[in-house]
Amino acid sequence: MKKNIQTFAWLFSAGSLFVACNNDDNSTIIEENTFGAAELYFDNGVNGDKLVLGSSYSNSNSETLTINRFNYIISNIVLIKSDGTEYIYPKAKSYFIISEEADLHTVQLENIPAGDYVKVRFGLGVDQQKYLEGETAQQEFWDYAVQHNLTWTWSTGYRFINFEGTFKPAHAAKHEDHEEPETGTPGLFNFQIHQGSNTSTDNYREITLNLPTTARIRQTDKPSIHIVADANKITDGRNKILLQDNLNAAGTNASIMGGENLIKIAENTLQMFFVDHVHNGSGSHH
């Protein structure tokens, strides 16, 4: 059922936006000192298509990527009203994992002051303060992140994004003289992109998104903010990163886990998200 609703939302997002706009029958009165809940729904896509693990996507770098893993950390959520006042969700509770393979797509928020919110801000990854505090403040977020392949242990910290799969480079012929790739298929290579901070560069970024429709949080009204995450932007955004250029010396696989690429990816991810639509009212919906 949930899947059907998701698919519906994906295909008919414009339509549901229209519905959402008309679904305005609730009272506009905001009762003082009341609280409600909200949900952020992260729908993973690839340049306008739905992200399906195992499927192949061609990008403007002339590379074809088959995505096998797309997990990331969403943190430090802030909801913003039209007058600019911000509700900062309690930091200790503000770390979440989105995982395509584990079917984790929602961030559930509770005890938010009732109001009309027009923007949402969130972090992609773990901020430097938490990063340094390590597990003291994270509580068992570390263990949770371990389960979803979002930790680094050779350097201490979190992977903000774990994006893995296989790819066919633009000029496969160029690599014929190399050893056989790990995939066992000539011209097809594994790739691992692990975005994160290290003790040299802080690659945590915060992203602010406008909501196309006001999210009305009331005691009885729980809006669902439907956010699309475009995985294509990681390598094919403002900065173009060719996986082929990151093949290891033996030419068997491409790993991006450090250096300038992480800074470029951090910039690309600023354009990775947009809010597709907002559902207002009570009840479950995507």
Binding site: E133, E135, T136, W154, S155, T156, G157, N198
Partner: peptide, 17 residues
């Protein structure tokens, strides 16, 4: 190599290596 800059986190490195 500066794998960690936190006394809280540094034990993660040898434990997992």
């Amino acid at each position: 190599d500066g794998a960690s800059n936190s006394i809280q986190m540094l034990s993660i490195v040898p434990i997992h290596n």
